[in-house]
Design a protein around this nucleic acid. Sequence first.
DNA 1: GCCGTTTTCGGCCCGACTGTTTTCAGTCG
Length: 576
Amino acid sequence: MKNSEVAEKLMEIAHLLEIKGENPFKIRSYEKAANSILSLPKEIKEFVKEDKLKSISGIGASISQKIKELLETGKIQYLENLKKEIPQGLLEMLNIPGMGPKKIKAVYTKFGIKDIRGLEIAARRGDLAELDGFGEKTAQNILRGIELLTRQSGRMLSVTAKKIAEDFVEFLRKEKTCKKIEVCGSLRRACETIGDIDILAVSSKPQEFMERFIKKDGIKKVIAKGETKSSVLTEDEAQVDLRVVEEKSFGAAVMYFTGSKKHNIHLREIAVKKGFTLNEYGLFKKTKKGTGSFLAGKTEEEIYKKLKMQYIPPEIREDTGEIELALQRKLPELVERKDIKGDTHIHSTYSDGNARIPEIAQKAKSLGYEWVGICDHSRSLKVARGLSIEELLKKKKEIENFNKKSDVKVLFGAEVDILPDGTLDYPDEILRQLDICIIAVHTAFNQPEDVLNKRILMAMENPYVHILAHPSCRLIGKREPLSIDYEKIIKKAKERGVILEVNVFPDRLDLKDIYIKFAIQNGVLISMGTDAHALYQMDNIDYGIKYIRRGWVKKSDIINTMTYDEVKKFLKGRNR
DNA sequence: GCCGTTTTCGGCCCGACTGTTTTCAGTCG
Ligand SMILES: Nc1nc2c(ncn2[C@H]2C[C@H](O)[C@@H](COP(=O)(O)OP(=O)(O)OP(=O)(O)O)O2)c(=O)[nH]1
Ligand SMILES: [Mg+2]
Ligand SMILES: [Mg+2]
Ligand SMILES: [Zn+2]
Protein backbone atom coordinates (compact mmCIF):
# COMPACT_ATOMS: atom_id res chain seq x y z
CA MET A 1 0.00 0.00 0.00
CA LYS A 2 1.30 3.40 -1.01
CA ASN A 3 2.06 6.10 1.54
CA SER A 4 -0.48 8.35 -0.10
CA GLU A 5 -3.15 5.72 0.39
CA VAL A 6 -2.32 5.34 4.08
CA ALA A 7 -2.43 9.13 4.49
CA GLU A 8 -5.77 9.16 2.69
CA LYS A 9 -7.26 6.76 5.24
CA LEU A 10 -6.05 8.90 8.14
CA MET A 11 -7.51 12.01 6.53
CA GLU A 12 -10.79 10.17 6.12
CA ILE A 13 -10.80 9.43 9.84
CA ALA A 14 -10.04 13.09 10.55
CA HIS A 15 -12.94 14.25 8.41
CA LEU A 16 -15.38 11.78 9.90
CA LEU A 17 -14.35 12.81 13.41
CA GLU A 18 -14.86 16.45 12.46
CA ILE A 19 -18.39 15.77 11.34
CA LYS A 20 -19.00 13.80 14.52
CA GLY A 21 -17.89 16.87 16.46
CA GLU A 22 -14.91 15.21 18.14
CA ASN A 23 -12.13 17.06 19.97
CA PRO A 24 -10.43 19.35 17.42
CA PHE A 25 -6.98 18.43 18.71
CA LYS A 26 -7.62 14.77 18.15
CA ILE A 27 -8.62 15.64 14.61
CA ARG A 28 -5.43 17.62 14.14
CA SER A 29 -3.46 14.61 15.30
CA TYR A 30 -4.83 12.52 12.46
CA GLU A 31 -4.18 15.32 9.97
CA LYS A 32 -0.67 15.79 11.25
CA ALA A 33 0.09 12.09 11.03
CA ALA A 34 -1.26 11.99 7.47
CA ASN A 35 0.92 14.95 6.52
CA SER A 36 4.02 13.35 8.03
CA ILE A 37 3.45 10.21 6.01
CA LEU A 38 3.10 12.22 2.80
CA SER A 39 6.55 13.68 3.28
CA LEU A 40 8.25 10.31 3.83
CA PRO A 41 10.48 9.11 1.00
CA LYS A 42 10.58 5.57 2.36
CA GLU A 43 7.64 3.27 2.14
CA ILE A 44 5.63 3.09 5.33
CA LYS A 45 5.78 -0.70 5.32
CA GLU A 46 9.51 -0.43 5.95
CA PHE A 47 8.75 1.43 9.18
CA VAL A 48 6.31 -1.29 10.18
CA LYS A 49 8.88 -4.00 9.48
CA GLU A 50 11.52 -2.27 11.57
CA ASP A 51 8.99 -1.32 14.25
CA LYS A 52 9.87 2.34 13.77
CA LEU A 53 6.42 3.82 13.13
CA LYS A 54 6.51 5.82 16.35
CA SER A 55 9.72 7.52 15.30
CA ILE A 56 7.65 9.42 12.74
CA SER A 57 6.59 12.74 14.20
CA GLY A 58 2.90 12.88 14.95
CA ILE A 59 2.50 9.10 15.09
CA GLY A 60 1.99 7.59 18.52
CA ALA A 61 0.60 4.42 20.04
CA SER A 62 -2.92 4.67 18.67
CA ILE A 63 -2.22 5.71 15.10
CA SER A 64 0.73 3.35 14.70
CA GLN A 65 -1.55 0.50 15.76
CA LYS A 66 -4.07 1.52 13.13
CA ILE A 67 -1.41 1.72 10.41
CA LYS A 68 -0.19 -1.76 11.28
CA GLU A 69 -3.73 -3.04 11.13
CA LEU A 70 -4.24 -1.37 7.76
CA LEU A 71 -1.13 -2.94 6.25
CA GLU A 72 -1.89 -6.36 7.69
CA THR A 73 -5.61 -6.61 7.02
CA GLY A 74 -6.24 -3.99 4.36
CA LYS A 75 -8.55 -1.98 6.58
CA ILE A 76 -8.94 -0.15 9.88
CA GLN A 77 -11.85 -1.33 11.98
CA TYR A 78 -12.11 2.05 13.69
CA LEU A 79 -12.57 3.70 10.30
CA GLU A 80 -15.04 1.06 9.17
CA ASN A 81 -17.14 1.73 12.24
CA LEU A 82 -17.05 5.48 11.63
CA LYS A 83 -18.13 4.92 8.05
CA LYS A 84 -21.10 2.86 9.24
CA GLU A 85 -22.07 5.70 11.53
CA ILE A 86 -21.67 8.52 9.01
CA PRO A 87 -22.93 8.42 5.41
CA GLN A 88 -20.33 8.82 2.66
CA GLY A 89 -22.27 11.74 1.18
CA LEU A 90 -21.48 13.89 4.20
CA LEU A 91 -17.77 13.65 3.41
CA GLU A 92 -18.44 14.88 -0.11
CA MET A 93 -20.33 17.83 1.32
CA LEU A 94 -17.08 19.00 2.95
CA ASN A 95 -15.88 19.95 -0.52
CA ILE A 96 -18.58 22.59 -0.89
CA PRO A 97 -16.97 25.96 -0.17
CA GLY A 98 -18.52 27.42 2.95
CA MET A 99 -19.82 24.06 4.19
CA GLY A 100 -17.86 22.80 7.13
CA PRO A 101 -18.33 19.95 9.56
CA LYS A 102 -20.67 21.82 11.89
CA LYS A 103 -23.18 22.80 9.24
CA ILE A 104 -23.05 19.32 7.75
CA LYS A 105 -23.76 17.77 11.09
CA ALA A 106 -26.63 20.20 11.66
CA VAL A 107 -28.41 19.44 8.39
CA TYR A 108 -27.85 15.72 8.89
CA THR A 109 -29.18 15.49 12.42
CA LYS A 110 -32.09 17.85 11.85
CA PHE A 111 -33.25 16.80 8.37
CA GLY A 112 -31.41 13.56 7.69
CA ILE A 113 -29.73 15.16 4.66
CA LYS A 114 -27.16 12.61 3.52
CA ASP A 115 -25.71 13.99 0.29
CA ILE A 116 -25.20 17.06 -1.86
CA ARG A 117 -28.35 16.40 -3.88
CA GLY A 118 -30.47 16.35 -0.74
CA LEU A 119 -28.80 19.50 0.52
CA GLU A 120 -29.53 21.28 -2.73
CA ILE A 121 -33.21 20.36 -2.61
CA ALA A 122 -33.56 21.50 1.00
CA ALA A 123 -31.78 24.77 0.28
CA ARG A 124 -34.04 25.45 -2.70
CA ARG A 125 -37.18 24.74 -0.69
CA GLY A 126 -36.06 27.09 2.06
CA ASP A 127 -36.12 24.37 4.71
CA LEU A 128 -32.70 25.20 6.05
CA ALA A 129 -33.78 28.49 7.64
CA GLU A 130 -35.36 26.48 10.45
CA LEU A 131 -31.93 25.64 11.78
CA ASP A 132 -30.21 27.79 14.41
CA GLY A 133 -27.60 29.97 12.79
CA PHE A 134 -28.98 29.38 9.30
CA GLY A 135 -30.61 32.36 7.61
CA GLU A 136 -31.63 33.46 4.14
CA LYS A 137 -28.12 34.01 2.90
CA THR A 138 -26.86 30.73 4.27
CA ALA A 139 -29.08 28.81 1.88
CA GLN A 140 -28.11 31.07 -1.01
CA ASN A 141 -24.44 30.60 -0.28
CA ILE A 142 -24.82 26.85 -0.06
CA LEU A 143 -26.45 26.80 -3.48
CA ARG A 144 -23.67 28.94 -4.94
CA GLY A 145 -21.13 26.71 -3.26
CA ILE A 146 -22.65 23.62 -4.89
CA GLU A 147 -22.55 25.38 -8.24
CA LEU A 148 -18.86 26.20 -7.79
CA LEU A 149 -18.12 22.64 -6.78
CA THR A 150 -19.30 21.17 -10.06
CA ARG A 151 -16.94 23.36 -12.04
CA GLN A 152 -14.04 23.48 -9.62
CA SER A 153 -11.03 22.33 -11.54
CA GLY A 154 -8.79 21.33 -8.66
CA ARG A 155 -5.19 22.44 -8.36
CA MET A 156 -3.26 24.32 -11.05
CA LEU A 157 0.12 23.67 -12.59
CA SER A 158 2.78 26.20 -11.60
CA VAL A 159 2.88 27.75 -15.10
CA THR A 160 -0.81 28.49 -15.06
CA ALA A 161 -0.66 29.95 -11.56
CA LYS A 162 2.41 32.01 -12.41
CA LYS A 163 0.68 33.67 -15.35
CA ILE A 164 -2.36 34.60 -13.29
CA ALA A 165 -0.18 35.88 -10.45
CA GLU A 166 1.91 37.99 -12.82
CA ASP A 167 -1.23 39.44 -14.36
CA PHE A 168 -2.55 40.52 -10.96
CA VAL A 169 0.80 41.82 -9.74
CA GLU A 170 1.27 43.88 -12.89
CA PHE A 171 -2.21 45.32 -12.51
CA LEU A 172 -1.85 46.12 -8.80
CA ARG A 173 1.67 47.49 -9.10
CA LYS A 174 0.36 50.16 -11.45
CA GLU A 175 -1.70 51.58 -8.60
CA LYS A 176 -0.02 54.69 -7.23
CA THR A 177 -0.87 53.70 -3.68
CA CYS A 178 0.91 50.35 -4.05
CA LYS A 179 4.07 50.50 -1.95
CA LYS A 180 5.05 46.83 -1.89
CA ILE A 181 3.75 43.67 -3.44
CA GLU A 182 4.80 40.04 -3.16
CA VAL A 183 3.42 36.70 -4.32
CA CYS A 184 3.32 34.32 -1.34
CA GLY A 185 1.69 30.94 -0.61
CA SER A 186 2.52 27.73 -2.42
CA LEU A 187 3.77 29.63 -5.48
CA ARG A 188 6.53 31.28 -3.44
CA ARG A 189 7.41 27.92 -1.95
CA ALA A 190 7.48 26.48 -5.50
CA CYS A 191 5.15 23.61 -4.77
CA GLU A 192 4.40 21.15 -7.54
CA THR A 193 0.78 22.22 -7.86
CA ILE A 194 -0.91 25.41 -6.73
CA GLY A 195 -4.32 25.60 -5.06
CA ASP A 196 -4.76 29.34 -5.19
CA ILE A 197 -2.77 32.53 -5.59
CA ASP A 198 -1.82 34.52 -2.52
CA ILE A 199 -0.70 38.12 -2.92
CA LEU A 200 0.46 40.45 -0.18
CA ALA A 201 0.70 44.22 -0.54
CA VAL A 202 1.40 47.42 1.34
CA SER A 203 -0.65 50.39 0.22
CA SER A 204 -0.91 53.99 1.36
CA LYS A 205 -4.68 53.76 0.82
CA PRO A 206 -5.64 50.18 1.70
CA GLN A 207 -9.39 50.58 1.22
CA GLU A 208 -9.07 52.11 -2.22
CA PHE A 209 -6.55 49.45 -3.13
CA MET A 210 -8.91 46.62 -2.14
CA GLU A 211 -11.65 48.25 -4.16
CA ARG A 212 -9.44 48.26 -7.25
CA PHE A 213 -8.52 44.61 -6.70
CA ILE A 214 -12.07 43.30 -6.61
CA LYS A 215 -13.00 45.39 -9.64
CA LYS A 216 -10.22 44.09 -11.85
CA ASP A 217 -11.19 42.73 -15.26
CA GLY A 218 -11.79 39.04 -15.51
CA ILE A 219 -13.19 38.54 -12.02
CA LYS A 220 -16.29 36.44 -11.84
CA LYS A 221 -17.07 36.49 -8.17
CA VAL A 222 -15.97 38.26 -5.02
CA ILE A 223 -15.76 35.54 -2.40
CA ALA A 224 -14.96 37.86 0.49
CA LYS A 225 -14.03 41.48 0.95
CA GLY A 226 -12.74 43.00 4.13
CA GLU A 227 -10.42 45.72 5.38
CA THR A 228 -7.22 43.68 5.21
CA LYS A 229 -8.16 40.65 3.16
CA SER A 230 -10.22 39.85 0.09
CA SER A 231 -10.69 36.81 -2.11
CA VAL A 232 -11.92 36.64 -5.66
CA LEU A 233 -12.60 33.98 -8.25
CA THR A 234 -11.39 34.68 -11.78
CA GLU A 235 -13.26 33.69 -14.91
CA ASP A 236 -10.92 30.75 -15.33
CA GLU A 237 -11.90 29.47 -11.88
CA ALA A 238 -8.73 30.47 -10.05
CA GLN A 239 -8.99 31.89 -6.55
CA VAL A 240 -6.83 34.90 -5.75
CA ASP A 241 -6.38 36.06 -2.14
CA LEU A 242 -5.10 39.55 -1.43
CA ARG A 243 -3.87 40.61 1.96
CA VAL A 244 -2.99 44.24 2.68
CA VAL A 245 -0.93 45.20 5.73
CA GLU A 246 1.13 48.11 7.01
CA GLU A 247 4.78 48.45 6.16
CA LYS A 248 5.94 47.60 9.68
CA SER A 249 4.14 44.24 9.43
CA PHE A 250 5.25 43.36 5.91
CA GLY A 251 7.83 40.75 6.90
CA ALA A 252 5.54 39.07 9.40
CA ALA A 253 2.75 39.03 6.85
CA VAL A 254 4.97 37.62 4.08
CA MET A 255 6.02 34.95 6.52
CA TYR A 256 2.44 34.12 7.49
CA PHE A 257 1.15 34.20 3.92
CA THR A 258 4.03 32.13 2.56
CA GLY A 259 3.45 29.31 5.01
CA SER A 260 3.38 26.48 4.91
CA LYS A 261 0.64 26.16 7.48
CA LYS A 262 2.67 23.47 9.26
CA HIS A 263 5.74 25.71 9.29
CA ASN A 264 3.69 28.62 10.65
CA ILE A 265 2.22 26.56 13.44
CA HIS A 266 5.59 25.20 14.48
CA LEU A 267 7.14 28.69 14.48
CA ARG A 268 4.27 30.02 16.53
CA GLU A 269 4.70 27.21 19.05
CA ILE A 270 8.35 28.14 19.42
CA ALA A 271 7.39 31.78 19.87
CA VAL A 272 4.92 30.84 22.60
CA LYS A 273 7.57 28.84 24.47
CA LYS A 274 9.71 31.96 24.52
CA GLY A 275 6.85 34.04 25.89
CA PHE A 276 6.11 35.65 22.53
CA THR A 277 3.19 35.66 20.14
CA LEU A 278 3.72 35.44 16.41
CA ASN A 279 1.02 36.48 13.96
CA GLU A 280 0.84 38.21 10.58
CA TYR A 281 1.43 41.59 12.20
CA GLY A 282 4.64 40.80 13.95
CA LEU A 283 6.42 39.10 16.80
CA PHE A 284 5.26 40.41 20.15
CA LYS A 285 6.45 39.97 23.71
CA LYS A 286 3.52 38.87 25.81
CA THR A 287 2.57 41.31 28.55
CA LYS A 288 0.04 40.99 31.34
CA LYS A 289 -2.55 42.95 29.43
CA GLY A 290 -2.94 44.42 25.97
CA THR A 291 -1.42 43.18 22.76
CA GLY A 292 2.14 43.02 24.03
CA SER A 293 5.20 44.91 22.88
CA PHE A 294 6.33 44.80 19.26
CA LEU A 295 9.64 42.98 18.77
CA ALA A 296 9.92 42.57 15.00
CA GLY A 297 7.82 42.51 11.84
CA LYS A 298 9.24 44.59 9.02
CA THR A 299 11.33 41.79 7.54
CA GLU A 300 11.31 38.01 7.70
CA GLU A 301 14.99 38.00 8.56
CA GLU A 302 14.56 39.94 11.80
CA ILE A 303 11.74 37.67 12.95
CA TYR A 304 13.77 34.50 12.44
CA LYS A 305 16.65 36.24 14.18
CA LYS A 306 14.55 37.14 17.22
CA LEU A 307 13.47 33.51 17.38
CA LYS A 308 17.19 32.61 17.46
CA MET A 309 16.98 30.94 14.08
CA GLN A 310 18.75 31.20 10.76
CA TYR A 311 16.72 32.62 7.90
CA ILE A 312 14.79 29.76 6.30
CA PRO A 313 14.34 29.89 2.52
CA PRO A 314 10.66 29.73 1.48
CA GLU A 315 11.09 26.54 -0.54
CA ILE A 316 11.91 24.43 2.51
CA ARG A 317 9.30 25.82 4.89
CA GLU A 318 7.40 22.56 5.21
CA ASP A 319 8.17 21.61 8.81
CA THR A 320 10.23 18.67 7.72
CA GLY A 321 13.22 19.41 9.92
CA GLU A 322 14.19 22.89 8.71
CA ILE A 323 13.14 24.58 11.94
CA GLU A 324 15.27 22.33 14.13
CA LEU A 325 18.29 22.86 11.87
CA ALA A 326 17.76 26.62 11.76
CA LEU A 327 17.80 26.66 15.56
CA GLN A 328 21.14 24.83 15.50
CA ARG A 329 22.36 27.07 12.68
CA LYS A 330 22.92 24.01 10.53
CA LEU A 331 20.77 24.71 7.49
CA PRO A 332 22.37 23.67 4.21
CA GLU A 333 23.32 26.38 1.73
CA LEU A 334 20.92 25.78 -1.11
CA VAL A 335 21.86 26.01 -4.77
CA GLU A 336 20.92 29.30 -6.46
CA ARG A 337 19.92 30.33 -9.95
CA LYS A 338 23.24 32.07 -10.53
CA ASP A 339 25.10 28.80 -9.88
CA ILE A 340 23.49 27.12 -12.89
CA LYS A 341 25.82 26.78 -15.86
CA GLY A 342 23.91 24.39 -18.08
CA ASP A 343 20.76 22.41 -18.86
CA THR A 344 21.07 18.64 -19.24
CA HIS A 345 17.96 17.80 -21.24
CA ILE A 346 16.85 19.63 -24.37
CA HIS A 347 15.26 18.32 -27.56
CA SER A 348 16.17 19.74 -30.97
CA THR A 349 14.71 19.48 -34.46
CA TYR A 350 16.64 16.24 -34.83
CA SER A 351 13.75 14.62 -32.91
CA ASP A 352 10.57 16.29 -31.66
CA GLY A 353 11.96 19.68 -30.63
CA ASN A 354 11.28 22.79 -32.67
CA ALA A 355 14.63 24.59 -32.35
CA ARG A 356 17.96 24.00 -34.09
CA ILE A 357 21.26 23.55 -32.32
CA PRO A 358 22.56 27.11 -32.89
CA GLU A 359 19.27 28.58 -31.65
CA ILE A 360 19.38 26.45 -28.53
CA ALA A 361 22.94 27.51 -27.85
CA GLN A 362 22.05 31.15 -28.29
CA LYS A 363 19.13 30.82 -25.89
CA ALA A 364 21.46 29.06 -23.46
CA LYS A 365 23.82 31.99 -23.65
CA SER A 366 21.02 34.41 -22.82
CA LEU A 367 20.27 32.31 -19.75
CA GLY A 368 23.87 32.68 -18.63
CA TYR A 369 24.97 29.11 -19.39
CA GLU A 370 28.28 27.69 -20.56
CA TRP A 371 26.81 24.50 -21.97
CA VAL A 372 23.68 22.57 -22.93
CA GLY A 373 23.01 18.87 -23.26
CA ILE A 374 20.99 18.21 -26.39
CA CYS A 375 19.35 14.87 -25.88
CA ASP A 376 16.98 13.72 -28.59
CA HIS A 377 14.88 10.59 -28.54
CA SER A 378 16.25 7.23 -29.61
CA ARG A 379 15.40 5.13 -32.64
CA SER A 380 12.45 3.04 -31.39
CA LEU A 381 10.43 6.04 -30.20
CA LYS A 382 8.95 6.69 -33.63
CA VAL A 383 6.13 8.97 -32.41
CA ALA A 384 8.76 11.42 -31.20
CA ARG A 385 10.87 11.05 -34.36
CA GLY A 386 13.59 9.11 -32.57
CA LEU A 387 16.97 9.18 -34.32
CA SER A 388 18.39 6.28 -36.27
CA ILE A 389 22.09 5.57 -35.72
CA GLU A 390 22.95 7.36 -39.00
CA GLU A 391 21.02 10.47 -37.93
CA LEU A 392 22.63 10.36 -34.53
CA LEU A 393 26.11 10.29 -36.06
CA LYS A 394 25.17 13.17 -38.33
CA LYS A 395 24.10 15.11 -35.24
CA LYS A 396 27.44 14.28 -33.65
CA LYS A 397 29.29 15.81 -36.60
CA GLU A 398 27.17 18.94 -36.52
CA ILE A 399 27.83 19.41 -32.82
CA GLU A 400 31.59 18.90 -33.23
CA ASN A 401 31.67 21.56 -35.92
CA PHE A 402 29.40 23.88 -34.01
CA ASN A 403 31.48 23.69 -30.83
CA LYS A 404 34.60 24.81 -32.73
CA LYS A 405 33.13 28.25 -33.26
CA SER A 406 30.73 28.64 -30.33
CA ASP A 407 31.48 29.86 -26.82
CA VAL A 408 28.43 28.07 -25.45
CA LYS A 409 29.25 24.39 -25.86
CA VAL A 410 26.84 21.63 -26.76
CA LEU A 411 27.05 18.21 -25.17
CA PHE A 412 26.29 15.51 -27.69
CA GLY A 413 23.49 13.60 -26.01
CA ALA A 414 20.55 11.28 -26.38
CA GLU A 415 17.52 10.37 -24.32
CA VAL A 416 17.74 6.66 -24.86
CA ASP A 417 14.66 4.52 -24.36
CA ILE A 418 14.70 1.83 -21.75
CA LEU A 419 13.03 -0.90 -23.75
CA PRO A 420 10.40 -3.11 -22.13
CA ASP A 421 13.01 -5.83 -21.48
CA GLY A 422 15.40 -3.47 -19.72
CA THR A 423 17.90 -3.19 -22.57
CA LEU A 424 18.74 0.16 -24.14
CA ASP A 425 17.70 1.45 -27.53
CA TYR A 426 21.23 1.90 -28.97
CA PRO A 427 24.13 -0.55 -28.85
CA ASP A 428 27.01 0.09 -26.45
CA GLU A 429 29.41 1.18 -29.19
CA ILE A 430 27.02 4.05 -29.93
CA LEU A 431 26.25 4.86 -26.29
CA ARG A 432 29.95 5.20 -25.47
CA GLN A 433 30.29 7.99 -28.02
CA LEU A 434 27.72 10.19 -26.28
CA ASP A 435 28.95 13.09 -24.14
CA ILE A 436 25.79 12.73 -22.13
CA CYS A 437 23.67 9.61 -22.07
CA ILE A 438 20.31 9.87 -20.41
CA ILE A 439 17.92 6.98 -20.25
CA ALA A 440 14.19 6.90 -19.68
CA VAL A 441 11.03 4.82 -19.84
CA HIS A 442 8.56 5.97 -22.48
CA THR A 443 6.62 2.79 -23.21
CA ALA A 444 4.99 -0.16 -21.45
CA PHE A 445 4.19 1.87 -18.33
CA ASN A 446 1.69 -0.69 -17.14
CA GLN A 447 4.07 -3.56 -16.61
CA PRO A 448 3.74 -5.10 -13.15
CA GLU A 449 5.71 -3.35 -10.42
CA ASP A 450 8.42 -6.01 -10.11
CA VAL A 451 8.97 -6.07 -13.87
CA LEU A 452 9.27 -2.28 -14.00
CA ASN A 453 11.70 -2.34 -11.08
CA LYS A 454 13.93 -4.95 -12.69
CA ARG A 455 13.71 -3.19 -16.04
CA ILE A 456 14.92 0.15 -14.68
CA LEU A 457 17.55 -1.33 -12.35
CA MET A 458 18.92 -3.41 -15.21
CA ALA A 459 19.16 -0.37 -17.49
CA MET A 460 21.08 1.47 -14.77
CA GLU A 461 23.74 -1.24 -14.89
CA ASN A 462 24.86 -0.21 -18.35
CA PRO A 463 28.34 1.33 -18.00
CA TYR A 464 27.67 4.14 -20.48
CA VAL A 465 24.60 5.53 -18.75
CA HIS A 466 24.97 8.89 -17.05
CA ILE A 467 21.47 9.94 -16.04
CA LEU A 468 18.13 8.33 -15.34
CA ALA A 469 15.54 10.83 -16.61
CA HIS A 470 12.06 11.50 -15.19
CA PRO A 471 12.19 8.35 -13.06
CA SER A 472 8.50 8.18 -12.12
CA CYS A 473 7.22 9.11 -15.60
CA ARG A 474 4.28 10.89 -14.01
CA LEU A 475 2.40 13.63 -15.81
CA ILE A 476 0.73 15.69 -13.11
CA GLY A 477 -3.03 15.47 -13.48
CA LYS A 478 -2.73 13.04 -16.40
CA ARG A 479 -0.61 10.02 -15.56
CA GLU A 480 0.12 8.54 -12.15
CA PRO A 481 3.75 7.94 -11.18
CA LEU A 482 5.04 4.43 -11.88
CA SER A 483 4.60 2.26 -8.82
CA ILE A 484 8.24 1.37 -8.48
CA ASP A 485 10.57 1.11 -5.51
CA TYR A 486 12.21 4.55 -5.37
CA GLU A 487 14.41 3.55 -2.48
CA LYS A 488 15.92 0.72 -4.56
CA ILE A 489 16.44 3.06 -7.51
CA ILE A 490 18.17 5.61 -5.30
CA LYS A 491 20.40 2.91 -3.79
CA LYS A 492 21.23 1.61 -7.25
CA ALA A 493 22.04 5.12 -8.43
CA LYS A 494 24.50 5.41 -5.57
CA GLU A 495 26.03 2.01 -6.28
CA ARG A 496 26.40 2.63 -10.03
CA GLY A 497 27.19 6.33 -9.94
CA VAL A 498 24.08 7.10 -11.97
CA ILE A 499 22.78 10.64 -11.74
CA LEU A 500 19.07 11.10 -11.15
CA GLU A 501 17.35 13.74 -13.22
CA VAL A 502 14.93 16.26 -11.88
CA ASN A 503 12.90 16.95 -14.97
CA VAL A 504 11.48 20.43 -14.43
CA PHE A 505 8.92 20.46 -17.20
CA PRO A 506 5.92 21.94 -15.33
CA ASP A 507 3.72 18.85 -15.45
CA ARG A 508 6.56 16.46 -14.61
CA LEU A 509 8.67 17.75 -11.69
CA ASP A 510 10.22 14.31 -11.54
CA LEU A 511 12.11 13.28 -9.33
CA LYS A 512 9.74 14.70 -6.83
CA ASP A 513 10.93 16.93 -3.98
CA ILE A 514 10.84 14.34 -1.20
CA TYR A 515 12.83 11.87 -3.30
CA ILE A 516 15.37 14.53 -4.28
CA LYS A 517 16.05 15.12 -0.60
CA PHE A 518 16.32 11.39 0.02
CA ALA A 519 18.62 10.87 -2.97
CA ILE A 520 20.96 13.58 -1.76
CA GLN A 521 21.02 12.20 1.76
CA ASN A 522 22.15 8.96 0.16
CA GLY A 523 24.99 10.64 -1.69
CA VAL A 524 23.39 10.54 -5.13
CA LEU A 525 24.03 13.38 -7.57
CA ILE A 526 21.19 14.99 -9.44
CA SER A 527 20.83 16.87 -12.71
CA MET A 528 18.21 19.39 -13.72
CA GLY A 529 16.74 19.25 -17.20
CA THR A 530 13.98 21.39 -18.65
CA ASP A 531 13.11 18.75 -21.28
CA ALA A 532 12.48 21.76 -23.52
CA HIS A 533 10.94 21.05 -26.92
CA ALA A 534 10.83 24.79 -27.69
CA LEU A 535 13.18 27.63 -26.77
CA TYR A 536 10.77 29.35 -24.37
CA GLN A 537 10.52 26.13 -22.36
CA MET A 538 14.16 26.51 -21.39
CA ASP A 539 12.90 29.31 -19.11
CA ASN A 540 11.32 26.66 -16.90
CA ILE A 541 14.72 26.56 -15.22
CA ASP A 542 13.56 29.44 -13.03
CA TYR A 543 10.77 27.53 -11.35
CA GLY A 544 12.95 24.44 -11.63
CA ILE A 545 15.70 25.87 -9.47
CA LYS A 546 13.16 26.73 -6.80
CA TYR A 547 11.61 23.29 -7.04
CA ILE A 548 14.92 21.48 -6.55
CA ARG A 549 15.63 23.72 -3.55
CA ARG A 550 12.57 22.06 -2.03
CA GLY A 551 14.72 18.93 -2.14
CA TRP A 552 17.43 20.69 -0.08
CA VAL A 553 19.88 20.64 -2.99
CA LYS A 554 23.28 22.25 -2.42
CA LYS A 555 25.55 23.53 -5.18
CA SER A 556 27.71 20.44 -4.87
CA ASP A 557 24.78 18.03 -5.25
CA ILE A 558 23.93 18.94 -8.81
CA ILE A 559 25.94 18.70 -12.01
CA ASN A 560 24.34 21.76 -13.61
CA THR A 561 26.63 23.92 -11.49
CA MET A 562 29.76 22.51 -13.15
CA THR A 563 31.65 24.49 -15.78
CA TYR A 564 31.82 23.02 -19.28
CA ASP A 565 35.28 21.58 -18.69
CA GLU A 566 34.22 20.11 -15.38
CA VAL A 567 31.03 18.52 -16.64
CA LYS A 568 32.67 17.16 -19.75
CA LYS A 569 35.47 15.59 -17.74
CA PHE A 570 33.10 14.34 -15.08
CA LEU A 571 30.80 12.59 -17.55
CA LYS A 572 33.72 11.10 -19.45
CA GLY A 573 35.05 9.70 -16.21
CA ARG A 574 31.77 7.92 -15.67
CA ASN A 575 32.15 5.86 -18.85
CA ARG A 576 33.39 2.55 -17.61
C1' DG B 1 -4.30 11.62 19.71
C1' DC B 2 0.37 13.37 20.53
C1' DC B 3 4.00 15.14 23.24
C1' DG B 4 7.83 16.31 26.97
C1' DT B 5 16.26 19.25 28.07
C1' DT B 6 10.90 22.69 33.36
C1' DT B 7 5.84 18.42 32.32
C1' DT B 8 3.46 11.49 31.69
C1' DC B 9 -1.22 15.52 32.34
C1' DG B 10 -2.69 19.46 30.27
C1' DG B 11 -1.80 21.89 26.91
C1' DC B 12 -2.34 22.01 21.59
C1' DC B 13 -1.33 28.95 16.31
C1' DC B 14 -3.75 32.82 15.61
C1' DG B 15 -6.63 36.00 13.14
C1' DA B 16 -10.12 37.80 9.11
C1' DC B 17 -14.61 37.63 7.08
C1' DT B 18 -19.54 36.27 7.00
C1' DG B 19 -23.96 35.82 8.70
C1' DT B 20 -26.54 35.50 12.37
C1' DT B 21 -27.09 37.22 16.27
C1' DT B 22 -26.95 41.34 20.23
C1' DT B 23 -21.78 38.94 21.54
C1' DC B 24 -20.45 34.84 18.56
C1' DA B 25 -19.92 30.43 15.83
C1' DG B 26 -18.40 28.67 11.66
C1' DT B 27 -15.27 28.59 8.01
C1' DC B 28 -11.22 29.71 6.01
C1' DG B 29 -6.37 31.56 5.39
N1 LIG C 1 -0.92 30.34 10.96
C1 LIG C 1 -1.69 29.81 10.00
N2 LIG C 1 -1.42 30.12 8.73
C2 LIG C 1 -2.19 29.57 7.79
C3 LIG C 1 -3.26 28.68 8.07
N3 LIG C 1 -3.82 28.32 6.92
C4 LIG C 1 -3.13 28.94 5.95
N4 LIG C 1 -2.14 29.70 6.47
C5 LIG C 1 -1.14 30.50 5.75
C6 LIG C 1 -0.03 29.59 5.26
C7 LIG C 1 -0.40 29.34 3.85
O1 LIG C 1 0.71 29.01 3.06
C8 LIG C 1 -0.97 30.66 3.46
C9 LIG C 1 -1.84 30.63 2.25
O2 LIG C 1 -2.88 29.71 2.45
P1 LIG C 1 -3.35 28.72 1.30
O3 LIG C 1 -4.55 28.01 1.80
O4 LIG C 1 -3.49 29.48 0.04
O5 LIG C 1 -2.22 27.62 1.23
P2 LIG C 1 -0.96 27.47 0.28
O6 LIG C 1 -0.80 28.66 -0.60
O7 LIG C 1 0.18 27.13 1.14
O8 LIG C 1 -1.32 26.20 -0.58
P3 LIG C 1 -2.34 26.10 -1.81
O9 LIG C 1 -1.51 25.68 -2.97
O10 LIG C 1 -2.96 27.43 -2.01
O11 LIG C 1 -3.30 25.06 -1.42
O12 LIG C 1 -1.72 31.08 4.60
C10 LIG C 1 -3.50 28.37 9.43
O13 LIG C 1 -4.40 27.60 9.77
N5 LIG C 1 -2.69 28.97 10.36
MG1 LIG D 1 -2.37 29.39 -1.74
MG1 LIG E 1 -4.99 31.27 -0.24
ZN1 LIG F 1 11.48 11.67 -21.89
